[in-house]
Simulated assay, not measured.
Amino acid sequence: MLEIAMNRMESGGEAKLKYGTPDFQIIKPGAYVRCAVTGEAIPLDLLRYWSVERQEAYVDGEASFRREMEAGGRKR
């Protein structure tokens, strides 16, 4: 399964998204986005965490929480 996901990411390139609530909009088609915290590639079909405010994607809940703490835990 991981091999299939990696092949899909290599052939599709990096996407550009506009993050909204509760979904995202694809601005530039691609197979993945990068986690703003770890730099890890996230296949679009596995993307579950992002910030509408910062327009960033996160690989998992821990990365999302880390970014929130770095930002001071503030909501605007």
Rank of each mutant, 00 (worst) to 15 (best):
I4H: 13
S51E: 05
R8M: 08
A5L: 12
I4S: 13
S64W: 08
N7Y: 06
T21L: 14
R67V: 02
R66V: 14
I4Y: 05
E10Q: 11
I4L: 10
V52I: 10
K18P: 00
I26F: 00
I26T: 14
I26M: 06
P29M: 01
Q55E: 13
R74D: 09
G73S: 09
K18V: 04
T38L: 10
I4C: 05
G12W: 00
E10P: 02
P43H: 05
L46R: 14
K28S: 12
T38V: 07
K28F: 00
M6G: 00
S11N: 08
Y49N: 12
R48K: 15
A36S: 15
A71K: 07
G61I: 04
R76P: 15
D60E: 01
P29S: 11
S51Q: 09
L2P: 00
E56H: 14
E40C: 04
E10C: 04
Q25S: 11
K16C: 08
G39F: 03
R48F: 02
T38M: 09
E10L: 12
A57H: 02
F65E: 15
L47H: 03
Q55S: 09
S64N: 08
V59D: 09
R34I: 03
L47C: 03
R8P: 00
R34C: 10
L44K: 04
P22K: 03
I27Y: 04
E14Y: 00
M69A: 13
D23C: 03
P43W: 01
L47Y: 01
A31G: 14
M6W: 07
Y32Q: 01
C35I: 07
G20D: 07
K16D: 03
E53S: 15
L2C: 05
E70Q: 15
D23K: 12
A41G: 02
E68W: 15
E68F: 15
D60Q: 04
V37H: 10
E53R: 14
G61Q: 08
E14S: 06
Q55P: 07
G39W: 03
D60M: 02
L2R: 12
W50D: 03
G39C: 05
E70R: 12
S64M: 14
R54V: 02
A5M: 06
G30E: 01
C35N: 09
R67M: 13
